[in-house]
Design a binder for these strands. Structure first.
Length: 816
DNA sequence: GTTAAGTCCATACC
DNA sequence: ACAGGTATGGACTTAAC
């Protein structure tokens, strides 16, 4: 039999002491298909150079006799082969060791202690990863599968309990051209009486799919057609499982569902002594604990969308938190519905409809976000080669490593191992290396500015200078000379697999970006973006202590060559009688002086002609005006703080309090307004009037409390803080009030007036929560929020705003 | 007891 | 444990007088 097939969820099982891959996917008609396949697991023994043939023969014979027994099973070496391979770019002889059960790879590797065996590698890859590499059945690609239909009795009861339309034992896999795939997505969200997992009852569960909207509940009934009422919690949970099975999604998605919804459901089911058999084999969700809890459902890809957004997207979002509300608002232009969380016993009769509505909306937003982000997720999955489940939770650095692992075969490379605990410890203790160059700006308001920046600078440095573990060398001929601290380090010019792979990613990114420019459509946009995300992870990866291909020399040299290049660009621009005013890492801002725009573009061209390798400088934009200010302490210009206005009057603000979420809205808005007025007008007149008015309002207590709330994130548990800061006090107060408080939460508070300023000098002694009675502290908001936010800006115009504010204090309020 | 330097902490830039 | 270094600035803590 032959089918079209797209693999979605990967799993494996043991049958008669061998491993089998069990892959769930769809055929071209949308039927749910299971395929069973296998390969011979193996790992490598890398031999010392010049080991003689006779010795090799003896070693192989020895290895072939290895058997390990543990309680569960007997495992043994099936056979060995001798191969010419590469390890970190070096030619090696290696013995390929085939074994009966992959799970015992590690213990068999431990039995290989001959002194001629230099290294053992490839025993830490994971069965599914190796399967995908061996059989080239890559996730979310279409294949033609030829195979035999399996019946219930094959493989014990593995098959008969599966809720699929067809199960095939694979004979042949052929990749096909087909690309399109629209997964069946089902979003879910629960509402519970307590925040602690399993502590309270689950009040309701919402489900949203295509033409599918449900709220399941048992506390209160409703006439609305999407609400279904059950007699108790257990009944509701049962219905939840039933509806999931009926909808038969490829993806079940929640928002923070790894950490909340799924474990909560599981805990409540346990409490009610019932099974939450969501898996297509009727198994319950399983949870694995890394740093974070991860919930897995067999045959259905459970995705916690928050984790994907955190790992892949957060740095490209404007949202100040990654709450469903803010992220939806930014990406969809749609918010959560209003609802103030309360225990179901306290929900009034007329409020229930709002509660249902709120619950449904959460799933609806999660569904829409998933629809929007799935193309990106799918593209990354295809590039990386690991299953969707893993990719949706992996960091970008992890993705890069997976990409490398899945492409090693092309280079005939044996995989490097994951670092052990002691190795990680060593790496973590290392000293920092020198990073990027940041130009010391001279404070002032500048006119006619241009910005150049390097495209994917660090990635293109890695490629251009061939910086990687496998190209690191002691040779001093035909090399690039980098540095790590005071030490010179060298990299071969002959391209290594890591820079080659990264180069391919950058090249594809460039192609799709061009394609997108020519013909803007969502597909090219997503592709261009996915390749960019992955390319940008390569630098951090090589300096990351957990990396297989960790190479501090490469990471430090990447920064070194980047510094060299940006400084050369700065010199060149200055030499041509432009004036550089600022630069940070990969960008440079300069005044055009007497030059025209065409001349500036010509300069860009010329610089590009002389850049090494694939490095490329780009025009970011032209700006009418820009402002740089002094540091709060000292008379130097502050780095990483500036504001610009381009020719379309679009304003770009970096680093200022306006963009910092730990300043109160009033200060942020005042500063934002000041920057806008100054950049628009080119002078400070209107801005000054504006600030005077704000000062007046503060003094007259005309400001609402919500405008003076300060938000600070709790980064660790309350007792772990060495310094007791205002936000720690606020967190304590929240806890004392019996409200939930946890690591990661944004704590809101304001600084209030106190009876005796003499007794209570510290800021933390004046902290009040938003709902506490009290008035905002006029002096604090003037001297610690508003004035500091605008002081340095006015200083550019030689205006001392503090004096003006002080002076105005003595005047009658009415004089403003 | 006051003040300045040092440390902790959060958050931004790239 | 789950990318890197550079930088600002508030508030607390501690050392020095």
């Amino acid at each position: 039999m032959q089918i079209q097939f797209i693999p979605i969820d990967y799993d494996y099982f043991d049958w008669q002491e061998k491993n089998y891959a069990k892959i769930i996917g769809r055929d071209d008609k949308g039927k749910r298909i299971c395929i069973i396949d296998s390969f011979e697991p193996y790992f490598w023994a890398v031999l010392k150079p010049k080991t003689c043939d006779l010795k090799i023969k003896q070693i192989r014979e020895k290895i072939e006799k290895i058997e390990v027994n543990d309680k569960l099973r007997k495992s043994r070496v099936i056979r060995t082969e001798l191969h010419d391979k590469k390890f970190l770019g070096q030619d090696v002889n290696a013995i390929k060791i085939f074994i009966t059960n992959y799970k015992d790879a590690h213990s068999i590797a431990d039995e290989i202690g001959m002194k001629e065996v230099n290294k053992r590698r490839g025993y830490d890859l994971g069965y599914i990863t190796q399967y995908i590499i061996e059989k080239k059945l890559k996730p979310l690609n279409w294949y033609k599968i030829e195979g035999e239909v399996l019946t219930d009795n094959d493989f014990g009861n593995i098959i008969n309990s599966l809720d699929v339309d067809l199960c095939l034992k694979v004979n042949k896999i052929t990749e096909t051209e087909k690309q399109e795939f629209k997964p069946k997505i089902l979003a879910y969200d629960i509402e519970a009486d307590e925040f602690e997992i399993g502590k309270g009852e689950i009040v309701m569960i919402s489900l949203v799919g295509e033409n599918f909207r449900k709220v399941l509940t048992w506390k209160h009934c409703s006439d609305q057609n999407f609400v279904e009422c059950f007699k108790d919690e257990a009944d509701m949970l049962e219905a939840f499982v039933k509806y999931v099975k009926q909808y038969s999604p490829d993806i079940l998605v929640g928002y923070f569902s790894d950490g909340f919804d799924l474990p909560y459901l599981r805990a409540r089911a346990e409490k009610k002594s019932m099974k939450l058999n969501l898996g297509i084999d009727n198994s319950q969700p399983s949870f694995s604990r890394g740093r974070l809890l991860t919930g897995k459902i067999k045959g259905i890809v459970h995705i916690d969308l928050l984790r994907f957004i955190q790992n892949a997207y957060s740095q490209y979002l404007q949202s100040e938190t990654l709450s469903l509300n803010e992220v939806s608002n930014e990406l969809l232009g749609e918010k959560k519905h209003e609802w103030e969380h309360k225990h179901s016993a306290k929900v009034k009769k007329h409020e229930w409809e709002d509660y249902f509505d709120y619950n449904l909306q959460d799933s609806a937003l999660t569904y829409k976000l998933t629809e929007k982000l799935f193309p990106d997720l799918m593209e990354i999955t295809k590039i990386v080669g690991e299953p969707l489940f893993n990719v949706s939770r992996s960091t970008m650095a992890g993705d890069f490593e997976d990409l490398v692992i899945h492409n090693l075969e092309r280079f005939n490379e044996i995989p490097e191992k994951r670092p052990m605990r002691d190795e990680i410890g060593k790496r973590m203790q290392r000293e920092k290396y020198e990073g990027a160059f940041v130009f010391q700006p001279v404070p002032g308001l500048y006119e006619n500015i241009s910005f150049f920046d390097f495209t994917s600078m660090y990635a293109s440095v890695i490629v251009s200078y061939n910086l990687s573990l496998s190209t690191l060398t002691k040779d001093k001929k035909n090399v690039y000379q980098g540095e790590l601290g005071n030490k010179k380090v060298y990299f071969l010019k002959k391209p290594g697999f890591f820079p080659i792979l990264l180069g391919e990613i950058i090249e594809k990114r460039k192609q799709y970006k061009e394609e997108y420019k020519k013909n803007p459509n969502p597909i090219t946009k997503v592709r261009s973006n996915a390749y960019k995300l992955i390319a940008n992870a390569a630098y951090g990866y090589q300096g990351f202590f957990g990396a297989r291909y960790y190479c501090l020399e490469a990471a430090a040299s990447t920064a070194y060559f980047a510094r060299q290049n940006i400084k050369q660009v700065i010199d060149k621009i200055n030499k041509e009688e432009y004036q550089v005013v600022y630069s940070d890492t990969d960008s440079v801002a300069f005044k055009l002086n007497a030059h025209t725009k065409p001349q500036t573009l010509e300069l860009l061209k010329e610089i590009n002609k002389n850049l090494p390798g694939i490095m490329e400088l780009d025009l970011e934009d032209f700006y009418k005006r820009g402002i740089w200010v002094t540091k709060r302490t000292g008379e130097f210009g502050a780095k990483k703080k500036y504001a610009l206005i381009n020719e379309e009057n679009k304003i770009k603000i970096r680093g200022f309090e306006t963009v910092r979420r730990d300043w109160c809205n009033l200060a942020r808005e005042t500063q934002n307004k000041v920057l806008h007025l100054i950049l628009n007008d080119g002078n400070e007149q209107k801005a000054l009037e504006y600030v005077k008015n704000v000062i007046r309002k503060i003094k007259n207590r005309e400001i609402e409390i919500k405008e003076v709330l300060i938000r600070t994130q709790l980064k660790k548990s309350i007792d772990e803080y060495k310094a007791i800061t205002p936000h720690v006090i606020a967190a304590r107060k929240i806890k004392e009030a019996g409200k939930p408080i946890d690591i990661g939460m944004l704590v809101e508070y304001f600084i209030a007036e106190v009876r005796s300023e003499k007794e209570k000098k510290l800021v933390r002694e004046k902290v009040k929560l938003p709902d506490e009675k009290g008035e905002y502290n006029i002096n604090y908001y003037l001297n610690n929020q508003i004035l500091p936010a605008v002081e340095n800006i006015f200083e550019v115009f030689n205006i001392n705003i503090k004096e003006i504010a002080d002076g105005s204090k003595q005047k009658k309020l009415g004089e403003f």
